[in-house]
Design a protein around this nucleic acid. Structure first.
Lengths: 208, 208
DNA sequence: TAGTGTGAAGTCTTTCACAGCA
DNA sequence: TGCTGTGAAAGACTTCACACTA
C-alpha cells in the first residue's frame, strides 16, 4: 500500500479527522499517537486507522505509534492543504456571512479574499472586513485575484449560472451550498443542509 | 429486495436527492419519471436508481417509469420526513442565524421552535422571529416543547457539554456544526465545513 | 418499444488476525 | 509487551446484462 495509489474517498474524509485530532494532540503536548488512540477518539477501528495512514507512506513505529509532527505534515500534503488558496464567496446572504466569519477557514489556509453579491444595496458595504463587490465582476476578481476556490452561497435559482461563470473563468473547485447539482466540469463538494437533516431523520427512525 | 431490509446509508443520501428532484418534476407538471431520467439529472447510473428505489417497495412500470406522486410519498416515508418535527437551535451566532432563516427546513417539516444562546446580551432579543432564550433553559424547552432534534451551532469548546445536556433530556437526534465528535448516544450527523473544504482541496489536486 | 427488476459479477472498503519489530 | 503493517477474508455497494412486461 504505497503513497502512489489514489486514496479512496472515504479515507480522505477520515484523513481530515485525523489531521484535526493530531493537531489537537500536538497542541496538548503529546509527541506520538497510536492507531488505537486515534481510533477511539474518532469512533473508527484501529485497523482502519493503520490502513488509512498506510496510504500516506507514513511509517509508525511498533510499540510507540506515529510521531505527530511528521504525521501532520504528511496528512496536510495528502489533503493538499499544505499551502494557502484564495477563496471567493459568491452570495453575501446569511450563509455567506456565516462563512466569512468562520475562523477555521483561515487557519486551514483557505483565504477569503473576495465576496460578491447580486444585491446592489450590499455592494460597497463592508461585512466582517470584506467589502462586497458586484457579482458582475466575478471574472475579473477570479482572474486578477488568483482565486482557486469558489463558494456558491446564492439562492438555488442563481446557483447554476454562477457556477458556469466561475468554471468558465478557470476556477479549480467549488463548495456548493445550493440544493441542486451544479453541472460544471470542476470538482464540486455539495453541502446540503436539508439532506443532512433528512439523513438524520432516517437515522433517528432506524432501529439500532 | 424488499422494503423490510435496512437501507444502506449511501442509498439514503441519494433518496434525499431523488425526493428533491421528484418534487421539482411534479411541480413542473410531470406525472412520471424514468430511472434514466433521474439518473442523468443526478449524475448516477440508471441501474443505481432502480436498485435504490427497489428498497422502497415502490414499483415502477415497464415502458413508463415511476409515477411521481406515490414515489414522493414513499420517499418521504422511507426518509422518515412524512411528519413534522420540532427543532431547537443551540447557538444564535452566525451559523445559528443562517439556519433560522433557511426556508427549506420548514418546507421539509423541520420546525424551528426555539433558539437558545449562552450570551446573555442576546437573550430576549428577537432574531428572525425567534426570541432567543437562555441556554440554561435547554432542559425545560426540550421537554415542554416536544423537541426531537437539536442543532449544535456553538463553539467547539461548548459543543460536547451542550450535546450531553440535550441527550440527557431525551432528544432524539443532533445536527452538529462544531468541528468535533459529540460522544452521545443518539444519532448525530456532522456538518464539518473545514472537512468539506479539505475534501475539495484533495479532489482538486487529484488527477482526473 | 421503452423501461423495469434483479441474479450474478465485479469493485471497493472494512475487518480480521497474526507475524514481526522496537 | 505494545504496537505496526498487511495478506487474506469478509462485507458492502455498484454495475452489468438481460428476461420480462405494459
Amino acid at each position: 500500500m504505497s503513497s502512489r495509489d489514489s486514496i479512496p474517498r472515504p479515507t480522505v474524509r477520515r484523513l481530515s479527522l485525523y489531521l484535526r485530532e493530531a493537531e489537537s494532540l500536538l497542541q496538548a503536548g503529546h509527541r506520538t499517537v497510536s492507531s488505537s488512540g486515534l481510533a477511539t477518539s474518532l469512533a473508527v477501528t484501529d485497523a482502519q486507522v493503520r490502513r488509512d495512514l498506510g496510504h500516506l507512506g507514513q511509517k509508525g513505529r511498533a510499540g510507540i505509534g506515529y510521531r505527530l509532527a511528521p504525521l501532520i505534515t504528511r496528512l496536510r500534503r495528502a489533503l493538499a492543504v499544505d499551502r494557502s488558496r484564495n477563496v471567493l464567496i459568491v452570495g453575501a446572504g446569511r450563509i455567506g456571512r456565516a462563512l466569512m466569519a468562520y475562523p477555521r477557514f483561515d487557519q486551514r489556509g483557505f483565504r477569503i479574499v473576495a465576496v460578491v453579491d447580486a444585491d446592489t444595496s450590499l455592494v460597497g458595504r463592508a461585512i466582517d472586513g470584506h467589502v462586497v463587490q458586484s457579482v458582475d465582476q466575478i471574472e475579473t476578481i477570479v482572474v486578477d485575484g488568483d482565486i482557486e476556490i469558489g463558494i456558491v452561497a446564492v439562492p438555488e435559482a442563481d446557483a447554476r449560472a454562477v457556477a458556469q461563470r466561475l468554471a468558465a473563468c478557470g476556477i479549480s473547485g467549488l463548495l456548493n451550498f445550493a440544493p441542486c447539482r451544479l453541472n460544471v466540469d470542476v470538482p464540486v463538494i455539495d453541502v446540503d443542509l436539508s439532506s443532512s437533516l433528512e439523513e438524520l431523520a432516517w437515522a433517528m427512525a432506524e432501529p439500532g
